[in-house]
Design a protein around this nucleic acid. Structure first.
Lengths: 337, 337
DNA sequence: TTGAAAGCGCTAACAT
DNA sequence: ATGTTAGCGCTTTCAA
């Protein structure tokens, strides 16, 4: 069943059918109707390979997700996937480790799959023009932006929260509840990524309130897995520090942290309050529930796809969206007596 | 950069280059070497569209995942994705709701993307030949098999645990710890899927131990989300039943259950023990940690891809793999005094 | 063992 | 507004 059969079926030429298929305007409406009907009757499905061959563009959008253990990114993938298909594109998903080079991965993907564009889920904030030369299709960074790099604003799109500011807010919240000695848990304070920005926000908030930064209260796990978060916080607790609160960089790590505190005899929130950033559904059901700044995951994913397809289709240009989190009060924070 | 350029580059015809590209045996080895080098030097990347057009087969493997909220399936997707790409195929992922029809989804995907095969992640156990007629490529069911359907064993592959037997084991474990009044939490006891089989295992175990099945101790949520699990178990606790243990169909639901029990004044494990099936990493860090039967997720995913590619490449035939879970003792089970 | 050439199904000039 | 036709890059007969 090819375009030729359809053409024969309703007595027009292949080009007319092709025109209908591609929504070209110059087809008489009654002919268009006839063709459309023939397409339906024949159960015709266009051959994407032939299409891609002649136009030398596929229908593929690459999604490169960095951080395989990250539940928040998993939830983004779901929405992104749905949106991409809904708009008639094909998603080519590539999940890579936190240490891996997402630009490299995207470049390979682009060549092999003839991508129309790329959505990065999680990644570094410090791309340079230099390394992005390999990537010649439009891309949008979801959950981050180019804070530490030298990219021109109109060279890419981004959808992100203001990590520094949000971490700041989280610390403000703890301080507002009477806490002064606030620990912090993150993977890497110099990762040129989320960790670094949120760490900056943490320090800034302390400073603004005239509180000293105490390195002994900072836990840097070096990797983004639960085990190392757990072990890090255990070590923190064992050092016997007098902290009464903890800021965790993400909900997942917060879960590990809460267990570590528990196992080391510090009850949450009576002995130590915990705040995180993410807003995973599961943390509505932990014991205690987690106080966390919820990122608008669904909207971030939708917007990313929207922005990219707008650019691909020439109906939009690169933009940078800043989202707000919403504090979801849980049972993990107590007011300090 | 096309096959033609490569051919010109080393003074052979396009057909010879094509032969090298496709590992045909009838190429003199020195010519093969020369071509290979030219390919490398030119940085030539085959055009998959052209290839697909002429062979009328793509390089795409469909992955249809049913149950979008399911963390266990998310972890499978990661491994499946990696494996598919490693073997040189392209993954086309489609995530659908638990209520949706995965066969229908796969059929559409097959037509549109010219799939070589399909991997189902989660799904019903009751396909009939009838409804599978739309699906003309080989497929493997990962995490389930055709218990309630009429499929011939050699018409498909499967990788699954013995759900009935594993649920049975979980209940045995509780009974072995002195429990007699054991509640059960699942989405749907007649879903022709995992829920139904595990429910059967639960009832069978009770029966074998001479314990009555009490419908008042069964929570059927109707859907697979945390909120309804939470509410269901709250209602169960409020009914004031004298149960001392609970079997949850999955780790996620167990988390919601534990919170519900807590919120209704039943401590876990002192007042109520909880066992689940899955083995998510996160439940190593809940408070208390979850006693659960761990499915070998990584291996299940690997095997699924392996089996499918073997069939696609003609080096294997349909098989049915049964995996074993491993009990991971946690803090959610106490011996009944 | 190699090369020449016919298409795979489609789009996009170009012609009418 | 519609038709004719030349390729897109590749595989695969077929002939040499």
């Amino acid at each position: 069943m090819t375009i030729k059969d359809v053409a024969a079926h309703c007595g027009v030429s292949v080009s007319t059918v092709s025109r209908v298929l591609n929504n070209h305007p110059d087809v008489r409406s009654d002919v268009r109707e006839r063709v459309l009907r023939a397409i339906r009757e024949c159960g015709y499905v266009p051959n994407n390979s032939a299409r891609a061959l002649v136009t030398s563009r596929s229908t593929a959008i690459g999604v490169v997700s960095r951080g395989v253990d990250n539940s928040f990114l998993s939830s983004l993938i779901r929405v992104v996937s749905r949106q991409i298909h809904q708009r008639g594109y094909t998603m080519v998903l590539h999940q890579i480790a936190t240490q891996a080079d997402e630009i490299q991965a995207a470049a390979v993907l682009q060549r092999e799959k003839k991508l129309l564009g790329v959505i990065f889920l999680g990644g570094r904030f410090n791309y340079t023009d230099e390394e992005l030369r390999q990537l010649t299709v439009p891309f949008v960074c979801c959950t981050y932006t180019n804070t530490f790099g030298n990219l021109a604003k109109d060279a890419y799109s981004s959808v992100s929260i203001q990590d520094e500011r949000e971490a700041h807010k989280a610390v403000d919240y703890l301080i507002g509840h009477g806490h002064r000695r606030i620990a912090v848990l993150l993977d890497d304070p110099a990762d040129n990524s989320i960790g670094q920005l949120r760490f900056q926000g943490y320090r800034q908030a302390l400073e603004e309130h005239g509180l000293p930064y105490d390195p002994a209260l900072a836990v840097f796990t070096g990797s983004y897995d639960l085990r190392s978060a757990y072990e890090g916080v255990c070590a923190l607790a064992e050092r016997g520090g007098d902290f009464t609160a903890l800021l965790a960089i993400s909900d997942s790590l917060a879960i590990a942290a809460i267990k570590a505190l528990n196992d080391r005899g510090r009850r949450v929130p009576q002995d130590c309050s915990v705040v995180a950033i993410d807003g995973l559904d599961i943390t509505n059901y932990t014991v205690p529930t987690l106080t966390t700044l919820c990122q608008p995951a669904e909207e971030m994913a939708c917007q990313s796809v929207q922005m990219l397809t707008d650019i691909i289709e020439g109906t939009g240009s690169h933009r940078h969206l800043l989202m707000e989190t919403v504090l979801r009060p849980g049972g993990s924070v107590a007011r300090l007596a």
